[in-house]
Design a protein around this nucleic acid. Structure first.
Lengths: 338, 338
DNA sequence: TTGAAAGCGTTACCAT
DNA sequence: ATGGTAACGCTTTCAA
């Protein structure tokens, strides 16, 4: 049998009620008694039973987190960071997977919503139309998804694309392919729009969109042939997994990366660093966005308002081996020794 | 406020006690009333509050699962499978990470042991001497770790090594390097022993052990030079992450895989399939072992005994592009057209 | 500031 | 077979 709050109360010679107040910090307790209670708790190795506590208190100190796929390292890292930070704040995070099934999401949330103080939703494919019903299920914050109804945290995709293109241009590339993701994917749409915006900014560079491939390794393989045909000297891939497939196909087709063609991915998954050549990629601030999301959600759960309705975090470019100057040296405009 | 068992009881015109019995299947209820209760529950969309339920009942219907590192895809997959299967059995799995800190493990387990019916322990580095104290904390099953005290599930590492060597030998390799893992790692020791055993079985093949490198990408990079120096035409690496580092270094040193040298990894992590060339690897039966572990633990938690004290599952060899016959064709012994 | 008591949703026990 | 009652560990009125 575990140590209960009654044991702590007895040792501190106070009532369980006072012990509870001292330990949770609610209500008013004499600083001296509070200290006694905390000491007793520490000496006994007391740990609050979170399930009993949420039974009585209106608050559960639990958050739900809904992700499409835990095997995806992107979401795995997001979950991990959220859990770690929520733990610091005294919250437990329950994780639920939708297996990319949009319908499952609402049902899952509904079954959880009575047991948690709020939900962190990281399923980019949620249709805007379905969001209304989500909101009815209690406080919610979106992660890596915008919304007009719910506060959200997202990374600045346009900045990420700009960083990548800027770097490629600095290396001397003047014709860059963008290997597009699936047409129906929300986040592919977001990246597509970002590419369009950046294309405007770099009017002297050709940015050609190729593909619309599945967001899988096989998609990248298929995209390889399209990329070669495009005549580009560098590619920005929809994401790292696609970039890895691309890398594979280009090698099969006899092209050397980065000597013949440069590749940039998106997301910085673990496999990107372990590829040969290691993949240059746009890293999204996963840990930071998870923290921001938890912060907003906890504020909401406590009945307050989050500091801001939307948080936009900057990604960073991780330059590795898969990018280098194009083989053909382009004419420079500046003066230089003949 | 959620629907409670009282609501269900009211609708079925029975007492909460009867409703509880009907829903959990304990005690005796008239089949007809049981059906009425179940209907009422379904119509109302009732869901048992697991926290309230574990508060009263001695059983929590929760399992703890302790892993070193969730970002490691090996453990991520193990957790995922365990959760899915435990869910089918009506159990919730709480996951705790030790961050490779052996001391944290016991403490973690102790803090959890009052809240769960049993623990699934997947931390291979646990010293045999510490296991006694683990057992005191309630029912436990080891995953991918043997034990004299606790039931365990493991995959047949010797078979895995044999499968890999057999295949390399069939391809014509006669000198094979084993790139060893860290000296202090328990699972590296297990694989080392398996290699020794298989070496006996293939007396006409040179199996040379090189290294003892860190179980990281960098370890594989370092091992690359050792492997080249060994003069082997094929390598079996401690695990996939090491194999990936090896792949990287060999490419840098100008060797082509598999033309100049073949590589086999261990574990079949996602990055293995996405490497170029794709990595031939020994796949451990993760999902099956998780299921077996949950089965044993649930049996234990219910006060019974598991069907067997140890389950040994067979790994499989996944042949991909990183293995091929050695460049130098070896003399054959059979008759053939001159 | 503190304590007594009630109650959160559920199940175990003891009657009926 | 069924219902009443108590109890799990905790927090929150309410009164002192």
């Amino acid at each position: 049998m575990a140590i209960t709050i009654r044991d702590v109360a007895a040792r501190a010679a106070v009532s369980p009620a006072t012990a509870s107040r001292a330990l949770t910090g609610t209500g008013s307790v004499d600083p001296a008694t509070a200290a006694r209670v905390r000491d007793a708790a520490r000496e006994l190795g007391y740990e609050r039973n979170p399930w009993a506590s949420s039974l009585r208190g209106g608050t559960t100190r639990k958050l739900a987190m809904i992700v499409p796929d835990l095997m995806n390292p992107f979401f795995a890292e997001l979950v991990r960071s959220a859990q770690a930070y929520a733990h610091e704040l005294g919250y437990l995070v329950l994780v639920a997977e939708t297996d990319d099934d949009a319908g499952a999401e609402l049902e899952l949330l509904r079954s959880l919503s009575d047991r948690v103080d709020g939900s962190l939703i990281c399923t980019p494919q949620t249709a805007e139309s379905a969001q209304g019903r989500l909101v009815d299920e209690g406080p919610a914050v979106f992660l890596h998804r915008t919304s007009t109804l719910v506060p959200y945290v997202i990374s600045d995709v346009a900045l990420g694309v700009r960083l990548a293109v800027e770097n490629l241009v600095a290396l001397g590339h003047r014709r860059i392919a963008y290997l597009d993701g699936p047409a129906e994917s929300w986040s592919a749409g977001l990246r597509r729009a970002a590419v369009a915006r950046v294309r405007e900014e770099f009017s002297d560079v050709d940015i050609v969109t190729v593909g619309q491939v599945r967001a899988r390794f096989e998609g990248g393989v298929a995209g390889g042939d399209l990329v070669i045909a495009s005549g580009a000297t560098a590619v920005l891939a929809y994401n790292d997994v696609v970039a890895l497939g691309l890398l594979h196909r280009l090698a099969r087709r006899g092209l050397r990366v980065p000597d013949d063609i440069s590749i940039v991915g998106f997301d910085d998954v673990p496999a990107a660093a372990m590829a040969s050549p290691a993949l240059t990629t746009v890293a999204q601030p996963l840990a930071e966005s998870a923290r921001a999301g938890v912060d907003m959600l906890v504020a909401l759960a406590r009945g307050g308002q989050p500091a801001e309705r939307a948080v936009v975090l900057p990604p960073t470019l991780v330059v590795r081996e898969s990018t280098a100057p194009p083989a053909v040296v382009l004419p420079r405009t500046g003066t230089e020794p003949a």
